[in-house]
Computed example of a mutant assay.
Amino acid sequence: MLPIRRAALLLPILALTLSASNCKKVIVEAATPKLPEATQDGKNTFGCKLGDKVWLPGSDHMLLPPLDADLTGTGFTLRASDDHNDAPGWEEFNLSLNTTSFVPGTYTLRNGLTARYWSRENDLNNIEDYIAGSGNTGTLTITKVEPRTKTTTVLGNTVTSNFTVVSGTFEFTATTSAGKTITVKEGRFDVQAF
């Protein structure tokens, strides 16, 4: 009879231990950054893997938006930044595509694409500037280009704005002037370009 009692006492303790370890696992998984879904609705999302780390834009203030997209008659520019208080302090991706015919398709470093990643500490020291140049590889695949109009009411006035949904994927390697190289992969974005 004694072994059954011990088992009966140990069973709730074992269940609590397993339950606590599962909670810890759920909390860790929820805190781990994940790439945004690959959407095509103008949700203003951006994400990539910088090496093996998921990189997402973010801002500690409202003065500078962490994601900005411009579409003009000469091309498309996308800037994503993270101005956080921990090291390195400020990071930014810049993707540009010079073309007068902006349509879905895959563009490379040799046909109009420029790609750059840079970082610095909050005190403006230790700037690292990675530029995708002739010795690097890189592609930008535009999957959607769709002009849209949005009408809203601001202080009783109707305001109409025109923008273009631009969605796609990207990957590239880039190098500093000192020869350090980074790999950017699984990049994706879904933005409203003005």
Rank of each mutant, 00 (worst) to 15 (best):
L2N: 05
P3K: 10
P12H: 12
L14E: 00
S21T: 08
S21M: 09
N22V: 04
C23H: 07
I27C: 04
E29P: 00
A30D: 07
A31Y: 14
A31I: 03
A31R: 15
K34Q: 14
K34N: 02
E37T: 14
T39W: 15
Q40R: 13
K43V: 03
N44F: 13
G47K: 04
G47C: 01
K49P: 00
L50F: 15
D52H: 13
L56Y: 12
P57H: 12
S59W: 14
H61A: 09
M62A: 13
M62K: 15
D68W: 12
G73C: 05
T77S: 12
D82K: 15
D83E: 12
D83I: 07
H84P: 00
E92Y: 04
N94P: 00
L95C: 06
S96G: 06
S101A: 10
V103T: 11
V103Q: 14
Y107P: 00
T108M: 09
L109P: 01
R110C: 02
N111Q: 06
T114K: 15
T114F: 13
A115Q: 04
R116A: 04
W118D: 04
D123W: 15
N125T: 10
I131V: 12
I131F: 12
I131N: 04
A132L: 09
S134F: 11
S134T: 09
G135H: 08
G135Y: 10
T137I: 10
I142F: 12
P147W: 12
V154T: 07
G156H: 06
G156D: 06
G156Q: 08
V165H: 11
F172M: 03
T181N: 03
G187C: 06
R188A: 02
R188G: 07
V191D: 08
Q192Y: 08
Q192T: 02
A193N: 10
F194A: 00
